[in-house]
C-alpha cells in the first residue's frame, strides 16, 4: 500500500489531501473539503492532468497575441508536446472567446480554445 500527501489545486483553498492507494487502485482520500478534492486526488495519483494556458501569435493587426487554454485538461506529460505545437501556430482575426484554434491537439482529445478575442 502507498500513502501520498497532496495539495489540492482544484481551487485556491489548497486543501492538504491524504491518499491511500494500492497499485492502480485508490483505497481512500481524506482532507478534502469538497468532491472536487476527491476527484483531484484520484486523478493526481493515477493519471495527473493540467489545464495548459499560453499565448498564440497573431499574423497581423493591433494585437500581437491571443491567449489560449486546453479544454478539457491534458495529461501532465503532454504539456511540452502541446507547447511545441503552440509555438508553430499563428492566427488571424476574427477570433472570439471560445473559438477552437486546434482540434484534438497532439491526439490528447483536448481542444486548444481561445480565451481572448481578436475582432477583425
Amino acid at each position: 500500500m502507498m500513502k501520498r500527501e497532496l495539495v489540492c489545486i482544484g481551487c485556491p483553498l489548497g486543501c492538504a489531501l491524504q491518499v491511500e492507494a494500492d497499485g492502480g487502485k485508490i483505497l481512500s482520500v481524506s482532507g478534502n473539503s469538497c468532491p472536487k478534492g476527491d476527484e483531484y486526488a484520484r486523478q493526481e495519483v493515477l493519471a495527473p492532468k493540467r489545464t495548459l494556458t499560453a499565448s498564440v501569435r497573431t499574423e497581423c493587426g493591433s494585437k500581437r497575441c491571443i491567449s489560449v487554454k486546453t479544454v478539457p485538461e491534458i495529461p501532465k506529460d503532454k504539456i511540452f508536446p502541446v507547447m511545441e505545437i503552440i509555438h508553430t501556430l499563428s492566427v488571424r482575426p476574427p477570433i472570439s472567446i471560445g473559438d477552437v484554434i486546434v482540434h484534438n491537439i497532439t491526439g490528447t482529445g483536448s481542444d486548444l480554445v481561445a480565451t481572448s478575442a481578436f475582432p477583425s
Binding site: P12, T51, T53
Partner: peptide
C-alpha cells in the same frame, strides 16, 4: 492568461481574459 479565476463568482475556472 492562467486559469483559476471566477470559482466563487461563476462556479467555474476561467482565465483572466475570460
Amino acid at each position: 492568461i492562467h486559469s483559476g479565476f471566477g470559482l466563487h463568482t461563476f462556479h467555474e475556472e476561467l482565465t483572466g481574459p475570460e
